[in-house]
Simulated assay, not measured.
Amino acid sequence: MSTASTDVRTRPQNASSLLRFDARHYLDTPGLSRIKDDIEIEVADRAYLPDLTDLKRDWVASVAAPAFRVLAAGRASRPHAFASIGTGSGIDALAAIEILGAEVVGITDLFDEVVAAAARNVRRNIRAGTDVALHAAAGDLLTPLAPSRVKFDVIYENLPNLPVDDTRAIEKDKTSAAFLAPRREAIPAFVADWLLTMHYLALVQSHDALTRDGVVLSTIGGRVPLSVLTQMSRDAGFVPRILTYGWKVQADADDVISTYANWELQGLGPFRFYTVDALTAAFADLKPGEAGADASAIEASLAGEQLGAVAAWEAHRSGVRIGHTYVVLQSSLAE
């Protein structure tokens, strides 16, 4: 029996509690064919809740799903296999099952309980008669999916930017904004300096997990120049393209902006923030795919509006609404 849908966030009180919401509203589509209309999501303690009170602030609804639509429209054939690195609640995988038509799905995250809950969410919300082979495992980036030997047509990642050196902080906190550092792998200096380490490593690991015409979708809070992101893709052995481009109000602004400001004071950056008013004017009514095609021009138009992290922190503390751009970077294997 389907449950009554709601567009209002409901916070689980324990592991067995569920978020219930209308997937048609969440994915901005009048009809669904592969996942249920009424979604029930269990959220593990270390996974972030979807933001159902304002879908423009929700990463899957406002960033991933539009990117999947643009990708699907531009492909000659439907992606057969999809992987999500850092899936959280698994809603990104459900969006891929519906929008991309994925029939084989791999999901990973850092903690066993997060992946277990995400796997239950995927299985619980697939429409009857839809066949999906699910591979779910916990661990570092793509490594947990290696035993499946699946080659993926689309690898999607929404990984953290901010390094921490305290295991206890990762253990006790939600991990969407930070990752455990240092890493042992060789990282280009510019990648580390722009706090893009995890995105680069996901690209490097993807070489062995992609089909020949597969792509990696890196979703990145664009607080760095677009040229840095495309160079990162090239250095990892890919051909880059800005698939979609947009902006968001800075979530967890007290923590995130102040952390970027601290890195800036140590010589990194300057990182790029903007007032919400400036972002609203620059993007106007452009759809994410349209903005992606015109990303360089939009970035140039914002040049005079940039706030470094220190300035953005001061503005935020004075009550100014601060946002940042986001990028969905498509990386294809070089010929």
Rank of each mutant, 00 (worst) to 15 (best):
R120P: 00
W247V: 10
G101D: 09
H207K: 07
E305G: 05
L329S: 04
Q330V: 06
I126Q: 01
G90I: 03
T29H: 06
E314D: 15
T10Q: 15
A102D: 08
D131I: 15
P147K: 03
N14R: 13
Y260N: 05
G269P: 02
Y48V: 04
W59C: 03
A116K: 12
A169V: 11
A23G: 06
H324Q: 15
A73E: 15
N158I: 09
R120S: 05
V310M: 04
S206F: 00
D38K: 12
T219S: 14
A300C: 02
Y26E: 05
A334Q: 11
V115F: 11
D54T: 04
I242C: 05
L210I: 02
D92M: 08
F111Y: 11
D153N: 07
D213S: 14
L55V: 12
F238T: 02
A102L: 10
A291R: 00
L195T: 04
T244P: 03
A253C: 13
L145Q: 03
P182N: 04
T230S: 07
E335Y: 00
V239I: 08
D165L: 10
G304W: 05
A311E: 15
P12C: 09
A177P: 01
V122K: 01
W59H: 05
V215P: 00
T143W: 00
T108V: 08
S332D: 07
E103C: 09
H199P: 04
V228W: 00
L100C: 09
N161V: 08
A72D: 12
S227C: 06
L333S: 07
T130R: 10
G90D: 03
A178R: 11
N14M: 08
V122Q: 01
P188R: 10
A189N: 07
R20N: 14
E171Q: 10
I91T: 05
Q330Y: 06
A133E: 15
